[in-house]
Nucleic acid binder design. Sequence first.
DNA 1: GTGCCCTTGTCAGGTTCCCTGACTGTACGC
DNA 2: GCGTACAGTCAGGGAACCTGACAAGGGCAC
Lengths: 153, 153
Amino acid sequence: MPLHGLLELAFDAVIEEFLGEMANSEFSDIRLAHGCVFRHMKENGLRLTEIAERGNMTKQSAGEVVDDLVALGYAERAPDPDDRRAKLVRLTERGEAAQSYGFRLLAEIEKRWGERYGAERIADLRATLEDVVAVEAPFALSEPAEPEPAMRR
Amino acid sequence: MPLHGLLELAFDAVIEEFLGEMANSEFSDIRLAHGCVFRHMKENGLRLTEIAERGNMTKQSAGEVVDDLVALGYAERAPDPDDRRAKLVRLTERGEAAQSYGFRLLAEIEKRWGERYGAERIADLRATLEDVVAVEAPFALSEPAEPEPAMRR
DNA sequence: GTGCCCTTGTCAGGTTCCCTGACTGTACGC
DNA sequence: GCGTACAGTCAGGGAACCTGACAAGGGCAC
């Protein structure tokens, strides 16, 4: 089986378990595509453009996802004080509850895999994937190098 | 970053490279979704139902993919001598050429990752994923336990 | 054999999630 | 100020799935 097949099947396995448990929670209206917002959200909100970049999708697609989350009460748009063109997407209280519930669920799934396949092996799996992703998908990584204070302006 | 995010990004990275190289080959009309046929194809062909099972999709979806591959000249349908309801999906000569080209490409990508991130680490990655998939996604694995000769009948 | 249920594949129609292209309004270098 | 670049939106489309309903063949009880 080619490597991408294994990656995909493992991904699907996590997601099936995750969505199954989400569907039985009070956050049953959350869908997989919403993850791109929850995954990257920062304290003070994120611009649509940032969501799109880190999610490796177009602004239009990211906008749809945000519209959906706003309609469901998980997110809201606020004007960006630094740029009147931009809006900051922020989680509502309910959005934050969903986010931390989801993260907890995912951590539990990873822990269960550790018990099933060996904690060290799963830790190695994660470490290798992190190295790979740092090179192959750098756009997805947290900070797009917020310039150092000394470099500002 | 949650584990499924890493798995997805790594998957996307392989696929982007793979599809990019396929697009520059003589098989530029092959799309990602076609993989479910090429990946599982056996010597004497596969029934639609088998393709659907191993690809974890409905018969209808598998049927669409096969229609597409037939239209593109990569596959053909032959009657199944053992069951007049069923048809065996087989690769054409061109289909076999595309399959082996694709497999070779994927093996090269994996080899490059070995050079970039350490051959042993990528081998471990594969081994761990194989264990995970064997438990979490057994439907995708080659033989649905063809009964042993002694157990037949 | 006949009737009944299961399986195989197909037709029709719908959803999700993403895309391209065209556009408005704001920012900013020059 | 002017032109270019960028943030986000509107409109439309397509790929890859899905559910439901169906015809035709298989397999078994009787």
